[in-house]
Simulated assay, not measured.
Amino acid sequence: MSNATAPTAPGAAGDSLVGSVLGPFLLLTLLGALLAAVMYVKKKRRSERLRHRLLPMYSYDPAEEPPESEQELLVEAEEAQVSSLA
């Protein structure tokens, strides 16, 4: 009977350590990338909805006359600029 133990491969213990560390790291990285992509899509969709909702309010038609109250404000602002330059 022999008390000798069978030699183990030198890389066997290191491979299991690398696998046990690398696996969860890759999993967390993939989950983080997926979460970032989902958040980006949600933000883009929300901004598109807001833009389409606000676009009719801020459309500018140069052929359209401004209301009289806005016209008076513009004239007053121009007169203030002219008087401050003189």
Rank of each mutant, 00 (worst) to 15 (best):
68 E>G: 15
24 P>E: 03
16 S>W: 06
69 S>Y: 15
8 T>A: 15
25 F>Y: 04
41 V>S: 06
29 T>I: 01
60 Y>E: 09
56 P>R: 02
76 E>H: 08
37 A>H: 10
36 A>K: 07
1 M>F: 09
80 A>S: 06
54 L>V: 00
73 L>E: 14
78 E>S: 04
22 L>P: 02
46 R>L: 04
5 T>D: 11
23 G>S: 05
61 D>T: 05
41 V>L: 10
40 Y>M: 09
38 V>Y: 07
10 P>E: 07
11 G>R: 14
33 A>I: 04
24 P>L: 01
29 T>H: 11
12 A>E: 15
43 K>M: 06
52 H>N: 11
44 K>Y: 04
48 E>Y: 03
11 G>H: 13
81 Q>T: 02
58 Y>I: 07
38 V>I: 14
19 G>R: 06
49 R>V: 00
45 R>F: 02
5 T>W: 01
26 L>F: 00
68 E>W: 11
29 T>N: 11
42 K>R: 13
61 D>N: 15
73 L>N: 13
51 R>M: 04
63 A>F: 09
57 M>C: 03
18 V>Q: 09
32 G>M: 09
68 E>H: 13
17 L>S: 05
17 L>P: 02
36 A>T: 09
27 L>A: 08
81 Q>D: 03
72 E>W: 05
14 G>Y: 08
78 E>G: 04
32 G>C: 12
17 L>F: 05
58 Y>L: 11
12 A>T: 14
59 S>W: 03
45 R>M: 04
81 Q>K: 07
63 A>V: 08
3 N>L: 08
65 E>I: 12
71 Q>S: 12
57 M>F: 07
76 E>Q: 10
15 D>V: 07
56 P>C: 03
38 V>L: 12
54 L>M: 00
51 R>F: 04
23 G>N: 06
65 E>V: 13
33 A>P: 02
64 E>V: 14
60 Y>I: 08
85 L>G: 03
71 Q>K: 15
7 P>K: 15
62 P>H: 09
53 R>H: 02
82 V>C: 04
67 P>F: 14
70 E>L: 15
30 L>R: 10
42 K>H: 06
85 L>F: 02
85 L>T: 02
69 S>W: 14
6 A>L: 11
18 V>T: 08
26 L>M: 03
34 L>D: 05
22 L>V: 04
26 L>V: 01
58 Y>D: 06
66 P>E: 15
20 S>K: 08
10 P>F: 05
79 E>R: 12
56 P>K: 02
74 L>W: 08
73 L>K: 15
49 R>F: 00
10 P>A: 14
43 K>A: 12
36 A>M: 11
31 L>N: 05
30 L>D: 05
37 A>D: 12
77 A>E: 12
35 L>M: 13
72 E>P: 01
13 A>S: 13
46 R>E: 09
5 T>R: 12
53 R>I: 00
67 P>N: 15
15 D>M: 12
85 L>C: 00
70 E>N: 14
71 Q>W: 13
8 T>Q: 14
54 L>C: 01
9 A>M: 11
7 P>N: 13
64 E>C: 11
80 A>I: 00
53 R>S: 00
37 A>R: 09
56 P>M: 00
47 S>G: 05
8 T>C: 04
38 V>P: 00
13 A>M: 06
84 S>I: 01
75 V>Q: 10
35 L>W: 08
30 L>Q: 11
17 L>V: 08
30 L>K: 07
19 G>I: 00
50 L>N: 03
29 T>V: 06
